[in-house]
Design a binder for these strands. Structure first.
Lengths: 107, 107
DNA sequence: CAGCATCCATCATGATACTG
DNA sequence: CAGTATCATGATGGATGCTG
């Protein structure tokens, strides 16, 4: 009997895409490969994102345990974002995507 | 001098995400790993997609040379979709994403 | 600085009905 | 079957003001 692609798809890939499939998740994660970043640094490093979207995506990624948020009670406040172990495991995948792009986009 | 993440990001990953970053591109490609599929088969195998979105995404993917469209003048009409070489190169990447999901989503 | 709240315009998506 | 057309709804972008 043939393997049911549909069921498999529903179970896992859907959840992955709910997290990574949006417009901003991968860009944010990509910037964080470079190391810990503050809120404003992320905003500056991600072209065309706006505050509202950045806040929203950071929460989603934090909720999915892909990034970690650390707040420091300084004045003015400092908040640092970094990848968790789970998030770091995405690095090779995203770099492969990047590589695929270099080799295959717009030839 | 430090490598400029921003510029690199803009040049390639953005283009990749324009193609693959939507809600339906990866699901469609994933189903096509199984082999050539007709329009209706795709629609049946991708949970919750609707005709309009499927048509639109298929066109986008065809335009990006990731899938190939072949129409046959039968009655009723037959249209088959399959992955191009470029599209097939995405298989390991998407399977890694899938694997990442199995290991890291909702534990 | 690191957000949250709000208003508004525009774009993307969903659900169906319809046609060659 | 393989789409196209249409309408309703929701998500997102952009500007801006407010707070601890």
């Amino acid at each position: 009997m043939k393997k049911n692609v549909k069921i498999e798809f529903k179970c896992v890939l859907k959840d992955v895409l709910d997290i990574l499939g949006g417009k901003w998740a991968i860009p944010i994660i990509y910037v964080l490969f470079d190391g810990t970043k503050r809120f404003k640094e992320l905003e500056r490093n991600i072209p065309n994102i706006n505050t509202r979207m950045l806040v929203k995506e950071l929460k989603k990624l934090e909720g999915a345990n892909i990034i970690r948020r650390e707040a420091f009670a300084t004045i003015p406040p400092t908040v640092e974002y970094s990848l968790t172990e789970k998030g770091k495991k995405l690095q090779p995948i995203i770099l492969n995507l990047y590589k695929w792009g270099e080799e295959n986009v717009d030839l």
